[in-house]
């Protein structure tokens, strides 16, 4: 089996197929192959171990609370009552908020860089956008806490409350730290992800699509809409879902700007808590077994959701890229 695959995978010597030559010429090759494969499979083993281990630790809490765990908002370590609804809500709302802000911007950047900007400008701006991804999460948290949050509290939130206060989402006092701030900071953090993948998707669209639109007398924007956007919807969806996956799991920056309050407030400006920020806040201090188990359950849920979301996104992006590879690359 091993030797066969060794040969099959060798893109180099397709002729080595006769039975006689199938035996390894060099014994070292076989050992080398298996060592590499063993170490490589260790990576898979770690992934599986993470899932299994989390599940085992969370088992007591799952048995104790059942499905009600995700519907109850009562999280009280002192009384040993645990329900994660508030954190699930916080994670979902902050991530959706982040996508809502980041989606038009990252798509705009990607289109601008790929379709409009001169090459020099595109590579410079593209580099800057990529650097956004390199900034550590804790630095975003620091910046969010001391720059974004005060600005939102004194300028943006009062304005929204004044003009849109009739919508329950924008009622209540402007805290500065809270769900909305978390959404804004998350949006900044996922913009590079979404725009980088969108750019790759757009690059995979054959040049002939654009030329066809131009030949029909389309304007620049119409060319983009007809020749580029139309055929890359699935890929864009994949990019957005990938961004969502990043937003769901982001911990430090969110922990620092979301205000860490353990219940559901209707107002976006109120403090909240996400699953990840709950773990960052409580896990190191938890000593009670049930408390630890409940926290592990939150972690397991987070792992499961991010696994599903990322698999879906990979599938979408990969399908689009492999399908379009057949067309002329740009």
């Amino acid at each position: 089996m091993g030797a066969q695959e060794l040969e099959q995978s060798s893109l180099l010597i397709p002729e080595v197929k006769s039975r006689k030559k199938r035996r390894d010429v060099h014994a070292g090759d076989r050992r080398f192959f298996w060592t590499l494969r063993a170490v490589a499979l260790l990576i898979l083993a770690v992934l599986i171990a993470i899932a299994v281990q989390l599940f085992l630790v969370s088992l007591p809490a799952i048995r104790h609370f059942g499905v009600g765990f995700v519907f109850s908002t009562d999280w009280n370590p002192v009384r040993n009552r645990f329900g994660a609804a508030a954190f699930v809500y916080g994670t979902v709302v902050s991530s959706v908020l982040a996508i809502a802000i980041a989606f038009p911007i990252s798509l705009g950047v990607a289109l601008f860089l790929n379709e409009l900007a001169p090459r020099r400008l595109a590579s410079a701006v593209g580099f800057l956008v990529e650097m956004l991804a390199a900034i550590p999460s804790v630095v975003y948290g620091l910046w969010g806490l001391f720059v974004v949050a005060p600005w939102l509290r004194t300028v943006f939130e009062p304005m929204m409350i004044r003009y849109f206060g009739f919508i329950p989402l924008f009622q209540g006092p402007p805290y500065g730290v809270g769900m909305f701030t978390a959404g804004v900071v998350l949006a900044i953090m996922i913009t590079p992800t979404i725009s980088a993948i969108s750019r790759e998707i757009f690059r995979a669209v054959p040049l002939s699509h654009r030329e066809a639109a131009l030949a029909l007398g389309a304007t620049r924007w119409e060319t983009i809409r007809l020749g580029v956007l139309n055929s890359s919807r699935l890929g864009i969806l994949g990019a957005v879902i990938l961004g969502l996956g990043r937003a769901l799991g982001e911990t430090m920056a969110v922990t620092m700007v979301i205000g860490n309050r353990k219940d559901i407030a209707l107002s976006l400006f109120a403090p909240a808590q996400t699953m990840a920020s709950l773990l960052a806040n409580e896990y190191a201090e938890a000593s009670d077994d049930l408390h630890l188990s409940a926290l592990a359950t939150v972690g397991f849920l987070l792992f499961l959701v991010s696994f599903l979301i990322n698999s879906l996104a990979r599938f979408l992006v990969w399908r689009v890229e492999s399908r379009q590879k057949e067309g002329a690359p740009r």
Partner: peptide, 21 residues
């Protein structure tokens, strides 16, 4: 290809989860 997928997923596991592990 399974491994490639696994590596991608491992890259996207929230870092706090790795901390729990």
């Amino acid at each position: 290809s399974t491994l490639r997928f696994g590596v991608d997923i491992l890259a996207s596991v929230p870092s706090i989860i790795v901390g729990l592990f």
